[in-house]
């Protein structure tokens, strides 16, 4: 199974799926391909975007992939603390730092949704700004979004920017956990995906190096030839 297919299939089997990533890991492209694969299998597609995360990701993806706006166009967008994202006309716009208020509003928005693909963006941005709210919002959001039947929750999260105890707390809520790392040496970078936890135990701790091209993500079991940046 291709690692991207593995993530897609695992996320359909159990949820939530956390994609731990680092700066430079091209997580945007991973999300693009993943959403493209998964979207059609669900009745609805909902994006929860904290601190303009969706705006940033869509802008970047649209500069690389012509069809990026089409991939995300039918999404029901809920923006939390938007600064630039208002122009995308979100279905709901929540402006507060209070985790409980945010989750209350989200609960009202998604209460009856089932057979829905949820993409939660920018929780890490929110966590940098309001670190004390992170331990409250993560379990609460997962609880609310898991309420409906056959929902799939995908959460990319940059753990590198937080202390280890925060990372451990976040990872403890992940039923599927995939790690996207960057290895940098003397001006060269290599990207690496490792399966930390998923229902297909034969893949646990298996790693691939990967590179992103305009057509696909290429995964290889060993390091790629060095590319200067």
């Amino acid at each position: 199974m291709n690692p991207l297919e593995l993530i897609a299939v695992a996320s359909k089997r159990i949820t939530p799926t956390f994609l731990n990533h680092e700066i430079g890991s091209e997580i945007e492209s991973v999300l693009y391909y993943l959403i493209k694969m998964l979207k059609e299998d669900y009745e609805e597609f909902v994006i929860l975007s904290f601190q303009d995360a969706y705006n940033s990701i869509l802008k970047y993806l649209s500069s690389i992939y012509k069809d990026a706006p089409d991939v995300f166009k039918d999404a029901h967008l809920i923006s939390i603390n938007p600064f630039l994202e208002e122009e995308l006309k979100p279905s709901d716009s929540i402006k507060t730092k209070d985790a409980e208020l945010i989750v209350g509003r989200i609960r009202g928005d998604v209460r009856t949704k089932s057979d829905t693909l949820f993409l939660v963006l920018g929780l890490d941005l929110y966590g940098v700004k309001y670190p004390q709210e992170l331990p409250v919002i993560i379990p609460a959001i997962i609880r609310v979004l898991s309420g409906g039947k056959n929902n799939n929750i995908i959460i990319p999260f940059n753990t590198k920017i937080f202390p280890e105890n925060t990372t451990e707390m976040v990872n403890s809520f992940a039923l599927n956990l995939f790690k996207f790392e960057v290895e940098a040496t003397e001006g060269e970078i290599q990207r690496k995906l490792t399966v930390i936890r998923c229902p297909f135990v034969e893949y646990t701790l298996k790693s691939w190096y990967y590179t992103v091209t305009p057509d696909r993500i290429i995964f290889l079991p060993r390091k790629l030839p060095p590319v200067s940046v």
Binding site: I23, G24, E26, I27, E28, Q51, D52, A53, S56, I57, K59, Y60, D124, L125, V128, K129, N158, I161, V229
Partner: peptide, 19 residues
Amino acid sequence: VSKLFGEYSARLLEMVIIN
């Protein structure tokens, strides 16, 4: 930064610097 690491990572780095 955005050209090199992507828009989202640029925003993340920006917020860490501000913080």
